[in-house]
């Protein structure tokens, strides 16, 4: 067993569990993986998925153009990356500002994306995914942590502190990011409704369907969040004393929470699809087909 680097432990010194450390354990050296299934596939695929999103989101956030389809194309679509519209030239009624002037070099998405980014970074599901895929802590079950089998040049191995120290202790702000993104879910719903506004009345295009699907998936992800499940009723010892919260916990947040992983990915994809579709229509790559 390698020597552990001494780092101060956070918080008061607790009563330690009386256990003997360093007794011989069985099996081949820890770096040897005995698993015969493709254990590397899941972290690889999810890691590539997240990396692809980061690349796309970076491009979309700095694009600062073609993020809405306006009345000049007889549509009223706004990209979720740029909602609420902070610039002066948006078609949407949800226009806060203009905080950033039209045609300025500063992309309003850089202000907007901070909130959903913080929400997804601290999400319990995404934490699992990136701890496995990027931290390799661990890369897969029963496969050794990357940090546990290697020593630094001075021979010491870094102590594992999990989410007890800065910066990972900040994962505990998850519920605050939830409050903010709740507002964004409302705004994206409004954008989806606005997508039905056509010149001369109500209509529907393929873009409208995409924005509606995006709003639905965002809500499924938002309301299935573990922090939301806790606040809606999970924190109670006696659900029987709070019938409304019990109903929400039993029939809404818990069922959605069971599929949180699915909605995490679907909502991530729907954001990309919505933005890409609006970019392509706005830039004239093709026209948005009208359904009615």
């Amino acid at each position: 067993m390698s020597v552990i680097e001494e780092v101060p432990l956070p918080g008061p010194r607790p009563q330690p569990i009386p256990v003997r450390i360093g007794a011989p354990r069985a099996g081949p050296p820890r770096a040897v993986v005995l698993r015969k299934d493709p254990w590397w596939a899941q972290p690889l695929i999810t890691g590539l998925g997240l990396a692809a999103f980061v690349v796309y989101a970076t491009w979309a956030a700095f694009r600062n153009g073609h993020y809405f389809v306006g009345l000049d194309q007889a549509r009223n679509y706004l990209s979720p990356f740029y909602s609420p519209c902070l610039a002066s030239n948006c078609p949407s009624a949800v226009r806060w500002g203009p905080i950033t002037p039209a045609n300025s070099g500063f992309s309003p998405a850089l202000i907007i994306l901070v909130f959903p980014l913080a929400f997804r970074l601290t999400c319990y599901y995404y934490r699992k995914t990136y701890y496995r895929a990027f931290w390799l802590s661990p890369p897969a079950c029963a496969v050794a942590d990357a940090g546990s089998t290697s020593a630094k040049p001075n021979g010491l191995r870094k102590r594992y502190t999990g989410e007890t120290r800065f910066p990972l202790v900040l994962q505990n702000i998850h519920r605050y990011t939830w409050y903010f993104t709740f507002i964004f879910a409302v705004l994206l719903t409004y954008d989806a409704i606005e997508g039905f506004r056509f010149p001369g009345g109500v209509g529907m295009g393929v873009g409208t369907l995409i924005l509606v699907a995006n709003a639905v998936l965002i809500w499924a992800y938002q309301l299935g969040c573990h922090a939301c499940r806790h606040m809606s009723g999970g924190s109670l010892k006696k659900l029987s004393k709070a019938p409304a919260r019990r109903w929400i916990w039993t029939n809404l947040t818990t069922p959605l929470n069971k599929h949180h992983q699915l909605f995490a990915w679907l909502s991530l994809m729907s954001i990309v699809v919505s933005d890409l579709y609006i970019y392509l229509v706005s830039s004239g790559a093709f026209s948005d087909p009208r359904i009615f």
């Binding site: 067993m1 552990i4 432990l9 607790p14 330690p16 569990i17 009386p18 256990v19 450390i21 360093g22 820890r30 802590s137 661990p138 079950c141 029963a142 050794a144 942590d145 940090g147 546990s148 089998t149 102590r159 594992y160 999990g162």
Partner: peptide
């Protein structure tokens, strides 16, 4: 299977 103690046995007294 928990890597906190499987790979970092030094955590056993406080986990």
């Amino acid at each position: 299977v928990c890597h906190v103690i499987r790979d970092h046995e030094e955590n056993k007294p406080r986990y």
